[in-house]
Design a protein around this nucleic acid. Structure first.
Length: 864
RNA sequence: GCGGGCGUGGCGGAACGGUAGACGCAACGGACUUAAAAUCCGUUGGGAGAAAUCCCGUGGGGGUUCGAGUCCCUCCGCCCGCACCA
């Protein structure tokens, strides 16, 4: 008897239609059920989905379908992070309008996502470039303004000369723009900032509560926030002649215990003092320019020598009357951190030491290992930094001599505070979030600049401020600024002529609250309180680790800002976060060095050649799929050829979800074969099996039942913990057991019932992962009600538990035998049995038994 | 430089401190077939042996333990994040 092969091309669209027509995945608030909100990071509509999307959305879909089957009221929405520069680049390069480019891409990608058979609630689809979405963003911004969460300030910003826009600190990687890769320049601009630093402590402290986030991500955020405990204090300044100046120099340090080792002060070239001096000192001005030109990229920092320019000023040591520290403007002091000024202690800071050696400044050690003679303790080329566990004492430090570092800190802090020249202070590395972008394709910032009234928020009744469609991209700069009329408005307050803000929001603003909008995508308010109270927080958020800082930190801040402005009632938006690994693939290169697509690479006589030209290819490293290396496989082609279930199954098999997965042809074939195998097994089970309650079975029939219930038990636990690869291994095992039963001769009624039961369980268990095939199989098994409406089965505890166990028998820690015994047998009985074994006697080789360790139902170890 | 993670067969990977290598891929042998594909059955960490069985084995070295892939110390290698942060 033959069974036709399973044909996904017929089955998949059919079931997708069924789910859509029956609105299976449209979520409604229902207080009678526990809710579960599963969300994958929404895509940028670049035009086509890539394998990273397939992996991300498959995982989310398995969770959504599994939770739904388990009785949860599941919210699983999808939307588009639709503002951003690729749309403008397309406009510049190809003359298409960013809007039509974006919406065409969305249409194409929506179709691709639908072909994956995802259990998404498409009725909640949101698009960030839709005024229906961004009007709420504008409304909230106005509320943020009123709540003092926004600041407009002129500051030195990171300017990307290629994208012609400002970048946030988080968007500068190794001194280069995160998108363009261009070396970032410093520019002075008036910008809008969201005051994320108001929440530094809060964002840091709350990380401890996020116990269902990866430790790695929490650590990265902790480091990014960069809390340090130190002191801010000031020096009296004097000039060359020793005349005291009216102003003091404030510095920040975490090592105030080393004050007696100070030999100079250094200020940033952007420090007010340096700027002022530069006005009448051309040499200093030249030095400032030189430093500014160097940039902040990794290479330049590595190579750059520590350089300083003496200002002719001296800082008086607070505890030693005669000591005067020369003040330099230095290239290694950052204006953005602390006070933009430091005191240098060369003995205990490598950077300060390099500087001191160059300018022949004193190097006085003030901390030394305990017991070392203070007079002979000298510093060579390396600063002395205490390591953890080192016992150290202060030396050469007057009243601090002999104290430990913490005690010295305490003493200095006490004295400085008494002298009223400084105080202990907590400092953060985190900077405020600059959100202004000089671009067209973003959400307009809803403010108006009026010459007489200053900054005036757009009245809420005038929202949304929509983007004009008639813009041109023929000259550099911001099209909104070039637009003939758009920016010219009347001041809402005085009615006089005014100018509309032409900057738009950083697109990370759009993605900082979309998770909340999904709760009530059509609400007239940004977020409907009742809906958010029901759905929030997101129970499982899935995406790439590349968003560990940017998006996830901004979202955590945004939820707090929305809370302050009464738009949301929750501070942590994502209760549990999962960061999935990348999809990687081999790279192929032709002799001329061109990258070759995997579809064009074929193996011939053990060598890789180009499928069309026959040209030999070299196989390169296995790397993240990327357009530049062309090592991409198009999901659409895979779905076309094998169906969505094959792609989904492959994505979940073998590799744990947090690790990088290598896409291989062999792996896809393997997934395809399994799908056909399951289809065959189910069809055979329909013929050979017998429906009915498989009660009272024994022997082989009972063993098959046990295998089924055990597999179900394991898969349930594994899916709960996102261990997809393990659950697939379990499903394979049950498939093997069912296959063996079908090969065997036993066709007793109990066996026929067990076969049927095993087949049904196999189908239900694999349904979250390959939903289309499961529906087909389920119908084949005679069920009128689809899998999508079928509850997750419950394993029978009696069948999961074993009444017999295999106990390993060890002698001196080495396995020598195993015995199969009734479960729960007492220690003495196990010991007596084991000691009678030939293998044990042989291994003991006549030695007397000294000790016996019995771990019930697991192992016995005989020590001889 | 600072911080973190990871090293297990030919490969992806399993393994509450308790039988290392589940499951899959690849490879090899066999069945079916005129043949191939598909499918099914079997073998597959290394070494010795006809076999029973024994020895070795989770990056290297050391330690704790009746027992270590798992815990501790140390070295080596790879990967990731941050980086002139005072």
């Amino acid at each position: 008897m033959t069974t036709e092969r399973y044909n996904p091309r017929d089955a998949e669209p059919r079931w997708q239609r069924y789910w859509t027509e029956n609105r299976c995945f449209e979520a409604r608030e229902d207080l009678s059920k526990p809710k579960y909100y599963v969300l994958e990071m929404f895509p940028y509509p670049s035009g086509r989905i890539h394998m990273g999307h397939v992996r991300n959305y498959t995982m989310g879909d398995v969770i959504a379908r599994f939770r739904r089957a388990c009785g949860y009221n599941v919210l699983h929405p999808m939307g588009w992070d639709a503002f951003g520069m690729p749309a403008e680049n397309a406009a510049i390069e190809r003359g298409v309008h960013p809007k039509s480019w974006t919406y065409d891409n969305i249409a194409a990608m929506r179709g691709q996502l639908k072909s994956m058979g995802l259990a998404l609630d498409w009725s909640r689809e949101i698009t960030t470039c839709d005024p229906a979405y961004y009007r709420h963003e504008q409304e909230m911004f106005i509320d943020f303004l009123a709540a003092d969460l926004v600041e407009r300030k002129v500051s030195t910003v990171n300017w990307d000369p290629v994208d012609n826009t400002v970048l946030a600190n988080e968007q500068v990687i190794d001194g280069r723009g995160w998108r363009s890769g261009a070396l970032v320049e410093n520019r002075e601009l008036a910008q809008w900032f969201l005051k994320i630093t108001d929440y530094s402590e809060e964002l840091l402290a709350a990380l401890d509560r996020l116990d269902r986030w990866p430790e790695k991500v929490r650590l990265m955020q902790r480091n990014w926030i960069g809390r340090s405990e130190g002191m801010r204090f000031s020096f009296a300044l004097e000039d060359e002649a020793g005349r005291i100046l009216g102003e003091r120099l404030a510095v920040y340090t975490t090592r105030y215990d080393t004050i007696f080792g100070a030999s100079f002060c250094a200020i940033s070239t952007d420090h007010e003092l340096a700027k002022r001096q530069a006005e009448r000192n051309p040499a200093l001005d030249a030095f400032r320019r030189e430093v500014a030109a160097l940039g902040t990229s990794e290479e330049t920092i590595e190579r750059a020598e520590k350089k300083g320019y003496p200002l002719g000023l001296y800082a008086r040591h607070p505890f030693r009357e005669k000591v005067r520290l020369p003040v330099y403007a230095a290239n290694f002091v950052l204006m953005g951190y602390g006070e933009g000024a430091i005191f240098g202690c060369p003995a205990h800071d490598q950077r300060d030491l390099d500087f001191a050696r160059k300018y022949r400044l004193q190097v006085v050690p003030v901390v030394a290992p305990k017991g070392v003679d203070a007079a002979s303790f000298a510093i060579g080329d390396e600063a002395y930094l205490e390591k953890e566990g080192d016992e150290t004492v202060l030396i050469n430090s007057d009243f601090l001599d002999g104290l430990s570092v913490p005690a010295a800190k305490e003493e200095i802090a006490r004295r400085m505070e008494a002298m009223k020249i400084g105080e202990r202070r907590v400092n953060y590395r985190l900077r405020d979030w600059g959100v202004s972008r000089q671009r067209y394709w973003g959400c307009p910032i809803p403010v108006i600049h009026c010459t007489s009234c200053g900054i005036v928020p757009v009245p809420k009744k005038d929202l949304p401020v929509t983007l004009p469609d008639d813009v041109t991209f023929d000259k550099p700069g911001n099209p909104l600024d070039h637009h003939p009329i758009w920016k010219h408005v009347k001041c809402p307050t005085c009615g006089g002529p005014a100018r509309r803000e032409t900057d738009t929001f950083d697109t990370f603003v759009d993605s900082s609250w979309y998770y909340a909008r999904f709760c009530s995508p059509a609400s007239a308010r940004p977020v409907d309180a009742a809906a958010a109270a029901y759905w929030m927080p997101v129970d499982k958020y899935i995406g790439g680790v590349e968003h560990a800082i940017l998006h996830l930190l901004y979202s955590r801040f945004y939820a707090r800002a929305m809370m302050r402005t009464h738009h949301l009632d929750i501070d942590e938006p994502f209760a549990s976060l999962f960061t999935q690994g990348m999809v990687v693939h081999e790279t192929f290169q032709s002799a001329s060095g061109e990258w070759v697509l995997p579809v064009d690479a074929v193996q011939k006589d053990g060598h890789w050649v180009h499928a069309k030209t026959g040209e030999p290819l070299t196989v390169g490293g296995i790397e993240k799929m990327s357009k530049s290396k062309r090592n991409v496989v198009d999901p659409e082609a895979i779905i076309e050829r094998y169906g969505a279930d094959t792609a989904r199954w492959f994505m979940l098999s073998d590799t744990p979800p947090e690790r990088d997965i290598e896409w291989t042809e062999a792996g896809v074939d393997g997934a395809w074969r399994f799908i056909q195998r399951l289809w065959r097994l189910v069809n055979e089970a329909v013929r050979e099996g017998s429906p009915g309650e498989p009660a009272g079975v024994a022997g082989a029939a009972l063993e098959l039942r046990r295998a089924a219930h055990r597999a179900l038990d394991a898969v349930t636990g594994d899916l709960m913990n996102l261990r997809f690869n393990r659950s697939i291994a379990r499903i394979n095992e049950l498939g093997n057991a069912l296959s063996a039963a079908l090969q065997a001769a036993d066709r007793s009624e109990p066996m026929r019932r067990s076969i049927r039961e095993a087949a049904e369980m196999l189908v239900l268990m694999s349904a979250p992962m390959m939903p289309h095939l499961a529906e087909e199989c389920w119908r084949q098994l005679g069920h009128a009600k689809p899998v999508v409406d079928t509850a997750w089965p419950k394993p029978d505890a009696a069948l999961v538990a074993d009444d017999c166990v295999t106990i390993a028998v060890q002698v001196n820690g080495k396995r020598r035998d195993e015995v199969r015994l009734a479960k729960g047998l007492g220690k003495e009985a196990v010991e007596a049995l084991a000691l009678k074994l030939d293998s044990v006697a042989r291994a003991l080789d006549g030695r007397p038994v000294r000790k016996v360790i019995v771990v019930p139902d697991r192992i016995i170890n005989i020590v001889g």
